[in-house]
């Protein structure tokens, strides 16, 4: 058996590769003149609980209580915040109340118009375009054009498509607008001029 003196003997210079540090103990070698920083820390050495606690304390320095940063530290084992940080008491505060969308008033005429719209959409889905003949479409478009303009003149402005805009393709809108302008012999520049002169 070797004596305790022999065990604690410092490793012979040049033969240190085989020597392993004890588990859980810090590697504290004497700083050499050639490699002062690298020799002090081993790459695979895991920090001790005391080192972890010291690291967490250093991280916690300057962190305010009841912040996201402090809460993240509380979760860590051995954090100085674990005992110190008081648990925030949740309290419900109503910030905003957003009312339900205004309910539409369904008049008998509106119900008829909605039923007609559903019928037209169904005929498009079924590719039965002949169901609503051109003369009927002309009557519908003309009536809707007058109705919308009458509302606008009366100051009752509303979105022409509303949420249904999501279901109408931009191409469809351009085709329809172009056809409407052509029907009343208007050029696009005339529309532009009118829009620049008015609020429409």
């Amino acid at each position: 058996m070797s004596s305790p003196k022999a065990l604690s003997r410092a490793p012979v210079k040049g033969k240190t590769d085989g020597a392993k540090p004890a588990v859980g103990k810090t590697v504290a070698s004497k700083p050499s003149a050639k490699k002062p920083a690298k020799a002090a820390v081993s790459d695979d050495a895991s920090p001790t609980p005391a080192q972890k606690a010291a690291f967490l304390k250093a991280m916690a320095a300057g962190v305010k209580l009841n912040t996201a940063a402090s809460r993240s530290l509380v979760k860590k084992k051995g954090s100085p915040f674990a005992a110190e940080a008081p648990k925030p008491t949740p309290k419900v505060e109503v910030l905003r109340r957003i009312p339900a969308p205004v309910k539409v008033v369904d008049t008998p005429e509106s119900k008829t118009a909605l039923a007609l719209a559903a019928l037209i959409e169904a005929s498009i889905d079924a590719r039965e375009l002949g169901k609503v003949q051109p003369h009927a479409q002309q009557a519908l478009v003309a009536a809707l054009c007058k109705l919308y303009a009458a509302h606008a003149e009366a100051g009752e402005r509303f979105d022409i498509l509303g949420q249904r805009a999501a279901t109408v393709a931009a191409t469809d809108v351009m085709v329809m607008c172009g056809a409407l302008l052509k029907a009343v012999d208007l050029q696009v520049f005339e529309l532009g001029m009118w829009q620049s002169w008015s609020s429409g």
Binding site: A68, P88, P90, K91, E93, V94, L95, R97, I98, A100
Partner: peptide
């Protein structure tokens, strides 16, 4: 996790929303 009283269902109309704050969470 605890149950936080938000309001009465009878005062909460269908389609209505409430933005509330519980602690630091906005819900």
């Amino acid at each position: 996790m605890a149950e936080q009283f938000v309001g009465k269902a009878s005062e909460f109309k269908d389609g209505e929303r409430q933005i509330i704050r519980i602690g630091e969470d906005e819900i």
